[in-house]
Amino acid sequence: MAPPQREVRAAHTDATVTVYQAYAPEIGVPAAEAGRFPAAWKRDRMTWIKPSFLWMMYRCGWGTKQGQETVLAVEISREGFEWALRHACLSSYAPGVHPDRTTWQRELKRAPTRVQWDPERDLYLRPLPYRSLQLGLAGEAARRYADEWTVSLTDVTSLAHEIHALVRDGDTDSAARLLPRESPYPGQEELLARLRG
């Protein structure tokens, strides 16, 4: 059975959820070494987090795109992740969700987080017929993410390169076995009630 059209799938524990980001080495490497974002990480600009490993691979080209050579797995508290969803607005106008475009624009200006749904990807980074969550954090949300919600930061660039090499060699079974185990996030019916668009 195909997954729902819009669903949060992530690696998660009882206390944390893993999201992915990719940075230039001068930010990503010190962050992974310290287990937290350095002072140089800009807390006043929007940052996008992705619970889908393969969507992150699509975005950063398996850690080969300029400025995205260091791929981080960021374990954050579920409490923080759920705060972000509860305070989010869809990044684009959805007639079935918002009464009108003006109301949506007003909500978007006020919201510290925004939700975008993009096609999930397969091992060849081709789009799949269902979507994956991207969560944009700005202002208060970005600061909380960096300084309160983050539990650990792990450099997974070598894993990205290993999986990519297996895919290039046609060994998709071995590549799939190395992927992080992502499953539907609990309680999302309530969390995403206004965010499915």
Rank of each mutant, 00 (worst) to 15 (best):
P180M: 10
Y23H: 09
G63M: 06
C89M: 00
A22S: 15
G139V: 11
Y185L: 04
R144V: 03
A94R: 07
P119W: 13
D118I: 07
V17A: 12
A34H: 10
P4M: 05
L72V: 05
Q188N: 09
K65N: 13
Y124L: 14
I49A: 00
L90W: 08
H164Y: 12
E120S: 15
A24P: 01
M46A: 14
A84T: 05
L137T: 11
P38I: 04
A176S: 14
Q105E: 13
T13Y: 09
D100E: 03
G67R: 03
A94L: 07
R78A: 14
R9L: 04
A176H: 01
E120G: 09
A10H: 02
D173F: 14
T113A: 15
W48N: 09
G28L: 08
A34N: 11
R36P: 08
V151M: 06
L90E: 07
L137M: 14
C60E: 02
C89A: 01
K65W: 12
K42R: 15
L159W: 06
P3S: 08
S158C: 05
T64L: 11
E162M: 03
A141N: 05
Y185A: 03
S183A: 13
L153M: 04
V19E: 05
G139A: 05
R59W: 02
G170C: 12
D173G: 12
V71N: 07
R101D: 13
E7C: 13
D155M: 00
W62Q: 00
Y130Q: 04
D44F: 00
T13W: 10
T47I: 10
E107H: 15
T150K: 00
L108K: 09
A175Q: 12
S132V: 08
L123F: 09
W83H: 09
G80S: 10
E7A: 14
S183D: 14
S183T: 15
I49Y: 03
V71C: 03
R114V: 09
E7F: 08
L128S: 06
E189W: 01
T102P: 02
A10G: 02
A10W: 00
D171I: 00
R131Q: 10
E120L: 09
A146G: 06
Y185M: 01
I27G: 06
P95S: 11
A39V: 06
L72N: 07
W48I: 14
T157V: 11
R9S: 07
A39R: 13
L125E: 00
F53V: 08
E26P: 02
G28P: 01
P119G: 09
V97M: 04
G63Y: 01
V8D: 03
A193V: 12
L166H: 05
T157D: 11
P180R: 04
S132F: 00
H87K: 14
R168T: 15
L108Y: 10
L178V: 15
F53P: 01
P127H: 02
W149T: 08
K109L: 11
E148Y: 13
A111P: 02
M1R: 12
L192W: 11
E140F: 01
A146F: 04
A73W: 03
W83T: 10
R86I: 05
L166K: 11
V97Q: 06
Y93F: 15
R126P: 00
Q105L: 12
T113N: 13
V115W: 09
V8G: 05
W55Y: 11
T102D: 09
